[in-house]
C-alpha cells in the first residue's frame, strides 16, 4: 500500500525522536520559521542569473539544520519521493514553453521554459526538504499545539487532533482488511476487483463513522465541552524565536545578497 501517496507506514513514521536543539524548539516557532523559509524560496526571481547560486545557498542552510538536528541525508531523500509527479511536469516545461529557443543535446528547448522548469524543480525540492525537516524533528501532536498557538480556528485544530489520533487506527483497520483479503487469495488486478474493494472502503467508512459516534459519546461523558484542555502554554523568549528564525533570516540574507551582487 502507500503507492498512492507513500504514507503507508502511518503518521508517526516521519518523526525521528531526538533531543537536538532543533527538536527542542517550540513547535509554533518552527512552523513560522519553515513557512517563512518557503516564502523566501518562492520569492526568488525565476529568471535572475544568480538564482542557481541562491538555491545552492538555501540548500546548504537546510543541510546545516539537518546536521544540527541529526537527521541523516537518507531520511531527507526519502521525503523527496512525493515530488516525483512534478518532476515530469517540470521536465515538460522547456519543451512546451514559448520564446527564444536553444539547442540542448539536439532538442530544441525554450530558454524561458528551461529557467522556469529548473526553478520549479529547485523551489519545490527546497520546500519539500524544509517540510521534511519540520516533520522529522516535530511530533505530529506537537505540530498541533503549534497550530493552536498560531490561532488556527479551534474547531479546525480539534478536527485535526481527532484525525491525527485516529488516522493510525483507521489505517490499521484498512491494513487488516488487506491482509484478510490477500490471505484468501485476492489480487486487485482488474476493474472487477472494485466489487471487492468498494465494499471494503465502504465498511471502513461505516466503522470510522460509528467509531466517531462512540468517541464523541465517550468524550461527552467525560465532560467534553467542545474544547480540549491544554496545560499552561510555555513562554517563548526572544532567544528561542531568534534561534528558530535564524533559518529564514539567513535565507533572506542569501536572497538579498543575490539581488545586490547579481
Amino acid at each position: 500500500m502507500g503507492a498512492g501517496h507513500g504514507h503507508g507506514a502511518g503518521l508517526a513514521a516521519m518523526y525521528v525522536p531526538g533531543a537536538s536543539p532543533v527538536h527542542r524548539l517550540e513547535p509554533h516557532t518552527k512552523l513560522v520559521a519553515v513557512l517563512a523559509f518557503a516564502l523566501v524560496v518562492v520569492l526568488t526571481p525565476v529568471h535572475a542569473g544568480w538564482a542557481p547560486w541562491a538555491y545552492a545557498g538555501f540548500l546548504s542552510l537546510l543541510l546545516g539544520v539537518a546536521a544540527v538536528a541529526g537527521i541523516r541525508p537518507g531520511r531527507l531523500l526519502r521525503g523527496l519521493v512525493v515530488e516525483v509527479p512534478f518532476v515530469f511536469f517540470a521536465l515538460l516545461l522547456p519543451v512546451v514553453s514559448r520564446g527564444p529557443r536553444t539547442e540542448v543535446l539536439g532538442l530544441s528547448l525554450s530558454e524561458s521554459g528551461l529557467a522556469a522548469g529548473g526553478s520549479i524543480l529547485a523551489k519545490a525540492t527546497l520546500s519539500v526538504l524544509a517540510a521534511t525537516l519540520l516533520a522529522a524533528t516535530t511530533d505530529p501532536r506537537a505540530l498541533l499545539r503549534g497550530l493552536d498557538r498560531l490561532r488556527l480556528p479551534a474547531v479546525l485544530v480539534q478536527i485535526l487532533t481527532f484525525m491525527i489520533r485516529y488516522a493510525d487506527v483507521v489505517g490499521g483497520e484498512l491494513r487488516r482488511m488487506k491482509v484478510a483479503r490477500e490471505s484468501r487469495g485476492f489480487r486487485a488486478r482488474r476493474v472487477g476487483a472494485l466489487k471487492v474493494l468498494g465494499p471494503a472502503a465502504g465498511s471502513l467508512f461505516i466503522r470510522s463513522y460509528e467509531r466517531g459516534e462512540r468517541v464523541h459519546l465517550a468524550m461527552l461523558s467525560r465532560g467534553y465541552t467542545g474544547r480540549l484542555p491544554t496545560g499552561p502554554v510555555a513562554v517563548v523568549g526572544p532567544r528561542s524565536w531568534a534561534a528558530a528564525l535564524s533559518l529564514p533570516l539567513a535565507a533572506a540574507a542569501v536572497l538579498g545578497a543575490g539581488s545586490l551582487l547579481g
Binding site: H5, I159, F162, A193, A200
Partner: peptide
Amino acid sequence: RTAPMAGLTAAFVFAVQMMNFPVAYGTS
C-alpha cells in the same frame, strides 16, 4: 458532534487515499 465526527471522517479519507484501486490492466 462536529469535531470528533469530522475528524474520524478525515481519518477515513486519509486512509482511503492510501488504498490502491485497479483502473486498467497494470495501472492503479
